[in-house]
Amino acid sequence: MIKVSDLTYVYQQGMPYEKTALDSLSFEIPDGDFTAIIGHTGSGKSTLIQHLNALVRPTSGKIEIDGVDITAPNADLRTVRKNVGLVFQYPEHQLFEETVYKDIAFGPTNMGLSESEIRNRVYEAAGFVGLPLELLEKSPFELSGGQKRRVAIAGVLSMQPKVLILDEPTAGLDPKGRDEILDQLVRLHAENEKMTIIFVSHSMEDVARIAKDILVMNKGRLAMQGSVAEVFAHSSELREMGLNVPQITELTHRLIADGVDIRPDVYTVKFAAELYAELLKEAENV
């Protein structure tokens, strides 16, 4: 479990550009959760996730992962970073090895694992992201954009983290590339019940499609936390924070405002179609 208590981070403290990036955040994320973090640029999302694997130290407050305080001065950063895998935005820009295999093996090698263990992990991670094994001996720079990104994600998965955090995993991809990554995350979550997945996203459609829970950040504070249904029910508050809800949710909320009797927790097209079909057929029968 991830437990964040009263987390505050002041950027460039004491300097003219001083800015409170995170303002007394407190929340918990249970094991095996699939959480999306949303918020507009500058809301503190990226700063928050960098705190979760101790790349940034808080100004005050505490973060505990499975009861271990990772913000303690004597915290073992190696263990923290092994347990919490962080995939940065545009992660394909950090590839550097001669072969895909070696790049995915970078994390496990740094962990000092045995040759055979590394091999197992690389194959497993490549499998998780759906990389064909014949690509492993290729140079990562010969691959397509979507494939490179999957290599980079595999490079974090091979460390077998308990918590996987991704910063905008679909940024810059076309719909097809985006669907591939999202589907793989869903599969990963289904196959590893204990793994907690947290991802930052600007796309409410993506969030509605794969996440279970949502954490909303606004101006460095935690604005909302709840299930996808609970959070998207507050479409007007979200809009005030410069965020959207999926188009289909917006349609439903507009119709409710127009006096149509329909449940508000609609956020996927498939579900909406069933609901609206029923509604229209019912009206037809009256």
Partner: peptide, 30 residues
């Protein structure tokens, strides 16, 4: 990039000169 490689367990700070120079590869290549 430095942070991304640190998240994968890269260590830029410890070791002798040779080790440190080698540790820079994952930063310099990208």
């Amino acid at each position: 990039i430095m942070k991304a490689q640190m998240a994968r367990g890269a260590d830029f700070e410890s070791g002798n000169v040779l080790k440190r120079a080698k540790a820079m590869i994952p930063l310099l290549v990208p």
